[in-house]
Design a protein around this nucleic acid. Structure first.
Lengths: 130, 130
DNA sequence: AACATATATAGTATATCGACGATAAACGAT
DNA sequence: ATCGTTTATCGTCGATATACTATATATGTT
């Protein structure tokens, strides 16, 4: 009987509008959990332009491998691909990351409190007096 | 000849001060890439208090499994554990996440541009006219 | 000393990830 | 219709991740 056995809306194929559940957060984080994918995001950031197979050259991995990374990024909703057969133009889709950033904001707000009040996020260890 | 073959400072055991490289981003993201770990973070957020094995009850996994998740979170620097043998008091350590959030901020700033200027982050797919 | 408590570690089985080459699929151009 | 280009998918592998049980470790209590 877990506390958060919520079913992700995105896991059901529906678009996520506002608050993300643990599953969504984890999915986005997993998409960001590989250097090559961060590199791809950075590339899309710097060029601010739609790139096709140029990504393959920059990343330096096999085309199939890069394609898989792009698939993962697309599946998480971080990027989207505009199809212009046979090319695909990838671009950042930051909307999805907004809520993810909000989640991090919660943690960092807690940090702000902790800076003001000593140890706001946790109490001192209780003595073992039972 | 990749664009970012930077060596992470944290990967060399040194503390990361300001800008994170792809490796660092990926490492933090990986720590966030499991629902159980998000759940643990949420728990530490909501209770704002030091919890020991209570985490095990909430998460609903085996004690050893939760211990492993806590180890991963600790290794990433997201949480820290205050040892009061035999208990360990865990608390959020948001400093590490600051730069991670900054990285997301880059992407979301790009989003702000995109809202103002039509398609600021990528150009429309060029017609295949070669 | 023996016990209870809280956490970490070892060992193990299974699942997923990440890389590759080979191949398929979709289209424009010849 | 065939060829070249670009992207996606398949099949495979080694490595890593995740879960469990069992056991070890450390400490306070009786």
């Amino acid at each position: 009987m877990q506390a958060s056995t919520q079913v992700s809306r995105s896991a059901k194929g529906e678009p996520v509008d506002s608050n993300l559940v643990d599953e969504d957060i984890a999915l986005i984080a997993k998409a960001l959990s590989h250097p090559a994918r961060i590199q791809i995001i950075r590339l899309l950031l710097s060029k601010k332009t739609c790139i096709g197979g140029d990504i393959v050259d920059v990343v330096g991995l096999a085309q199939s491998t890069v394609s898989e990374h792009l698939r993962i990024l697309k599946a998480s909703g971080i990027i989207s691909g505009e199809i212009t057969r046979p090319r695909v133009c990838y671009s950042l889709n930051p909307l999805r990351l907004n809520h993810f950033k909000d989640f991090l904001g919660l943690i960092l707000d807690c940090d702000a409190e902790a800076s003001a009040v000593e140890s706001a996020c946790w109490v001192s260890p209780k003595k073992n007096n039972n």
